[in-house]
């Protein structure tokens, strides 16, 4: 009889211990914080690497565990979700205008957000390059080759994709520099879009169209996306072609004030974004195919990034707000160009 009773007691103790061990993470000094990083399409691999490294560093510094959740999609669509209430602690989007939209439409952060962090809140940049099929059968070397008859160009829809807007502006900037007038640039870009058989909604969709479905002769892509596609989808099947001139594509980052203040995560969210500027993170950034802003790291990885003359949106186009209204809003130049190209 005693045996049964003691066995019963042991069973209860074991059960209690199990309950206690389950409850432990909350009771122990090490807390677990979670952040949500809402980002654009091609950064999945980058932030997977960054998050692991940051969590390790944060744990060593504070003893707390940090879990960073990820959400990816077309940059414009992601901004829309944050405006509609997706609880993003930080956003890391493809272009400044999408974060401006969050500040203006939902007042979740001040409109002066871009001045809060170094380098216009842009810890890495990239540019637009060409991905062509092996051996470059259509001999595509520069932007002029894209408007030749019989060349099919794959690029996503600038209305929904941040990358596509950079593609469009890179082509425009090249043409304006070479042919002088905005009119000539418009004609050039119209000819280019005549060669586009399909507009996907996001950068990743276009890459799949080009690489998996085998459509088109050349893909206009983020440099990092082209590098990744080249690596992931079979090396030797494609070649990266760097044009003579391209755009400096700057994907900025920001803390969403209203969310972090409500959730009490401001400290870790700011540390997370500041971490992106550290040499450690800049190395990860460079290894994943994005151009680092840190001079020393940039010098170290200079071999990975071909020299290309880059113009900026601020210098050539007068900033995103102006560009968005002129080119991409309803009835803007892109709509006119697309209508003309379809004819």
């Amino acid at each position: 009889m005693r045996n049964i009773v003691s066995a019963h007691i042991i069973a209860r103790r074991v059960a209690l211990a199990m309950v206690a061990s389950l409850a432990l993470p909350g009771a122990a000094p090490a807390a677990t914080v979670s952040l949500l990083n809402v980002s654009y399409d091609p950064t999945r691999e980058l932030y997977k690497d960054i998050n692991t490294a940051f969590a390790r560093q944060w744990k060593a510094k504070t003893g707390d565990d940090v879990v960073i959740n990820q959400s990816h999609g077309g940059s414009g669509k992601q901004a829309r979700s944050v405006i509609d209430g997706l609880q993003a602690d930080v956003v890391t989007l493809a272009l400044a205008y999408d974060i401006d939209a969050i500040a203006e439409k939902a007042q979740l952060l001040p409109t002066t957000w871009q001045a809060r962090m170094p380098e216009n809140s842009t810890p890495y940049y990239s540019t637009i390059v060409f991905l062509v099929r092996k051996g470059n059968p259509k001999a595509i070397r520069d932007w002029d080759d894209l408007v030749k008859p019989g060349v099919q160009v794959i690029t996503p829809n600038p209305k929904t994709s941040g990358g596509a807007r950079w593609n469009f502006l890179a082509a425009w900037g090249y043409a304006q520099k070479k042919y002088g007038s905005p009119k000539a640039a418009q004609d050039f870009v119209t000819k280019l879009y005549k060669n586009v058989p399909v507009l996907d909604s996001g950068a990743r969709g276009s890459t799949t169209t080009f690489a998996e479905r085998g459509l088109g002769d050349v893909l206009l892509a983020w440099e990092n996306e082209a590098t990744l596609a080249n690596k992931e989808l079979g090396a030797g099947k494609f070649e990266v072609v760097v044009p003579s001139v391209s755009i400096r594509a700057e994907p900025p980052v920001a803390v969403i004030d209203k969310v972090v203040d409500k959730r009490g995560t401001r400290k870790v969210a700011e540390a997370y974004l500041n971490y992106l500027y550290t040499p450690e993170a800049q190395e990860i950034i460079a290894r994943d195919g994005y151009r680092p802003v840190n001079k020393a790291v940039a010098a170290k990885y200079a071999g990975n990034f071909p020299n290309v003359s880059l113009f900026t949106i601020d210098h050539n186009f007068g900033g995103w707000k102006k560009t968005q209204t002129l080119f991409f809003n309803d009835g803007g130049l892109f709509d006119q160009i697309f209508d003309a190209a379809k004819r």
Binding site: L36, R44, E45, N69, Q70, H72, L86, R204, L228, L233
Partner: peptide
């Protein structure tokens, strides 16, 4: 959904994400 990995992705959404990640 908001497409938060491991949080708000159902199976069909998760399949799309994996496909997009090659």
């Amino acid at each position: 959904s908001g497409h938060i990995r491991g949080k708000t992705n159902t199976l069909p959404l998760h399949i799309e994400i994996l496909y997009n990640e090659y």
